[in-house]
Design a protein around this nucleic acid. Structure first.
Length: 353
DNA sequence: AAGACAGACAACCGCGACCGG
DNA sequence: ACCGGTCGCGGTTGTCTGTCT
């Protein structure tokens, strides 16, 4: 155990922060910035370790912190992103302007506690996917894997497998136990069982998924099996849009937004505002309001706010929407697709469970 | 009114990654 | 290449507060 190295040198205060301490920290950081956190407490006159100061600032004192309950849109976004990236709270938080990873983590955990306390209220099969965190149930993932594997090569299959097991982190096992039919839905409206919504980039080769988050990944070339770079998003009837997380952004992919309903102006404004922050791309993607889940509609709605420099006609021609409500994804389909200029495949909504 | 309980939130801890010497 | 310092992240625990009995 033992404290962090920065906390060993002096007697540091622990526990809740007093208003006086907050004031000292705010005053110091607003005038000097924080540069090196280990130096902050001493210079600010605080009996705290630098780590504690950093945490306090990031999670509570930062001026751009947004407090209060999560909106329905935020809740859905959290759920969707969690289905994609798992417990990478900082990653999720980067898509929620003003929210901290700690806040999101606490929110998620408290929701899980709820689920645990009310296990298996019902065993109806139809409730399986709605009771669990949407898009992340074993059933839906398994179905998805089963569906996707067939047409692809072994290499691609391996990529998808690894991707799903590593990046599409399932919720804690307890969730699965409790979700055997629990009727309680996620905080916001649950996503439908057909939520998996995958996009494959057939133009960008990637290294094994373990390095997905590394920008260097994009430089690895896997001959002829460019494949899975991302991602699952969710869709339902609600007015919310989804976008690619940074781990995809970092791979140099064209930014894409999948709007599944039409975001209200208010929300759009909110996300546009966020574009000025640390995640302009994502925020821009979210700001892109509009209609259905296909590029064409996005394009028609309004000038694409999502990375306009990235989302132009040229990149558009590399997109292929695949809504297999009507058509199965088969080897021949895939082959045909690969032979064209299309480089992105959106897939969904599927309901093969 | 008081105790039990649960939820929300704040903070700590340990670990891994990164970076500079 | 190695090592120590620092930072960031995720997991966990502690505390406060509101609600229920």
């Amino acid at each position: 155990m033992g404290h962090h190295s920065c906390c060993n040198q002096q007697k540091v205060k622990r526990g809740l922060w007093s208003p006086e301490e907050d004031e000292k920290l705010i005053r110091y950081i607003t005038t000097h910035g924080y540069g090196c956190w280990s130096e902050v407490p001493e210079k600010a006159g605080l009996q705290r370790c630098g780590k504690s100061c950093r945490l306090r600032w990031i999670n509570y004192l930062r001026p751009d912190i947004r407090r209060g309950r999560f909106t329905a849109e935020e809740e859905k976004l959290i759920i969707s992103l969690h289905a994609i990236v798992g417990n990478r709270w900082a990653h999720i938080a980067s898509h929620l302007p003003g929210r901290t990873d700690n806040e999101i983590k606490n929110y998620w955990n408290s929701w899980i506690k709820k689920k645990i306390r009310k296990p298996a209220m019902s065993t109806t099969s139809s409730s399986v996917t709605t009771a669990s965190p949407p898009c992340s149930t074993v059933a839906s993932d398994a179905a998805l894997v089963g569906h996707l594997q067939t047409p692809f090569s072994a290499a691609a299959e391996h990529q998808l497998d690894a991707f799903l097991s590593q990046s599409l982190a399932l919720p804690p096992p307890k969730m699965q136990v409790g979700s055997g039919g629990g009727q309680e839905s996620p905080p916001a409206a649950p996503l439908p069982p057909h939520c998996p919504f995958f996009m494959f980039d057939t133009s960008v080769s990637v290294s094994p998924p373990s390095s997905l988050t590394s920008p260097a990944a994009a430089t690895h070339q896997l001959p002829h099996h460019p494949f899975l770079t991302f991602t699952a998003a969710a869709m339902d009837d609600s007015p919310i849009s989804y976008h690619l997380p940074p781990l995809v952004d970092s791979m140099g992919m064209a930014m894409a937004a999948m709007d599944c309903g039409g975001l209200g102006e208010e929300s759009r404004g909110h996300y546009r505002e966020a574009a000025g922050n640390n995640n302009g791309q994502a925020a821009a993607g979210m700001a892109n309001g509009g209609g259905g889940c296909c590029y064409g509609q996005i394009k028609e709605q309004e000038p694409p706010a999502l990375g306009q420099d990235q989302w132009d006609d040229e990149s558009a021609q590399h997109l292929l929407m695949w809504d297999d409500d009507d058509q199965e994804l088969t080897p021949s389909n895939l082959e045909a697709m690969e032979s064209t200029a299309h480089s992105l495949l959106f897939m969904g909504p599927n309901d093969h469970a």
